[in-house]
Design a protein around this nucleic acid. Sequence first.
RNA 1: GUGGGUGUAGCUCAAUGGUAGAGCAUUGGACUGUGGCUCCAAGGGCUGAGGGUUCGAACCCCUUCACCCACCCCA
Length: 418
Amino acid sequence: MTKEFRSVQGFNDILSPEIAKFQHIESVARRCFGLFNFREVRTPVLEQAGLFERSIGTSTDIVEKEMYTFEDKGGERLSLRPEGTAPVARTYIEHNIDKQDALQRWFYIGPMFRHERPQRGRLRQFHQAGVEIFGTDDPFADVETILLADTIISSLAVRDVTARLNSIGCPVCRPAYLKELRSYLGSVRERLCEDCRKRADTNPMRVLDCKKEGCLEATASAPRTTDHLCNDCSGHLSGLRSGLDALKIPYTIDTRLVRGLDYYSRTVFEFAPARDTRAQNAIVAGGRYDYLVELLGGPHTPAIGFAMGIERMAALIDTPVQRGPAVFFVPLSSESRVKAVRLAGVLRHTGRTCEIGYGEKTIKSMLRRADRLGADLVIIIGEEELRDGFVTLKRMSDGTQERVNDADLPDAVGRMKS
RNA sequence: GUGGGUGUAGCUCAAUGGUAGAGCAUUGGACUGUGGCUCCAAGGGCUGAGGGUUCGAACCCCUUCACCCACCCCA
């Protein structure tokens, strides 16, 4: 069949039963955010293109070729947000949050957009849940951010996920490090892949992140960020590590871990399935961005956060069982349907989920439907029930059924269900 | 952006140039107001689309579209 309309490439419909995973992940995430006392912030999906260009960095792939950027009718250059941090930082600045209380703990959940070739774990519209802590450079904020990510992952019963961690320094120590790294990379240049030769000039730290064997070997003895941190950065890192150790949160230091976004400083981290060697396997990633708010025109505001990929998390969990309705009504005439609607209203008032069968279908087909939906109880209303003011209440699990007077229905439903 | 793979019923897949099929699902019946189990039956397809070769194409060729996977990169 040729369908006239289909969803746009990389923009997927999410429907039952897959939707149950999303609902579960989001509700677990919300609960954890709430328990850590983070407040929700909802920002628009559209922002000025410049916000991302400046924050993420113009030489990153995201900005260079993956943004949905267009001119609207007013001639403004707008972008669908490719990530959540920059918009939230913009919000922090725009509403002068620091004037009230510079320390803020925020979370967001929503769709993000990147124009890439879709594949496993990568879509053009995807969903992230993330947090940001603004207004402190206390390493304990880093600890708590990582703890929160770890809490969500374990609350979702996802196993064998490991955390990798690194510090990429700050404007004080990074220039000297980069100088050293550049000269090292120059010395092994001919052993690097073509991409990495370019990166060696434009974004040398990314060379460390290359997965190609030749590059891995060539950079095996490259200078490490962690050996070139200034006193403050190194103190920050050890504060973070001792916090994680004290809480017994497992992690490994990975000096090759740099992140793809320009705004990170000091702490960067990533959670990924231990066994999965595929490239796009990070389910949570984040880091510190102490200079982003400033870069966007706000006051100096150290901050840290992470983003979790909801689709990627969904790939790691089982589909939760979706409960059927507590009660499915089987009215055998239009008069009895009126009664069914009335009784369903009473039951819904007591918190029972009810669905009423439609149409001229036979009792058999309606019962089949009730069975398929997984209804606990069925209420049959025919001629006799209508005339004498009762209903036939049937328990699907064992088929037992009884006559129940209309007025006794809520009690009888409670009794039969248990 | 580059490379590979796949498109046949709602779903998962057969059919290798000669009448398009199965399982599951759906609907109905056996069972006239009673679901699941079993049995019986039915509906459902321009074989992604367009063109070509051939007496004849799901199958071969060309074009195109879509999806999947990988690279790149990222959540």
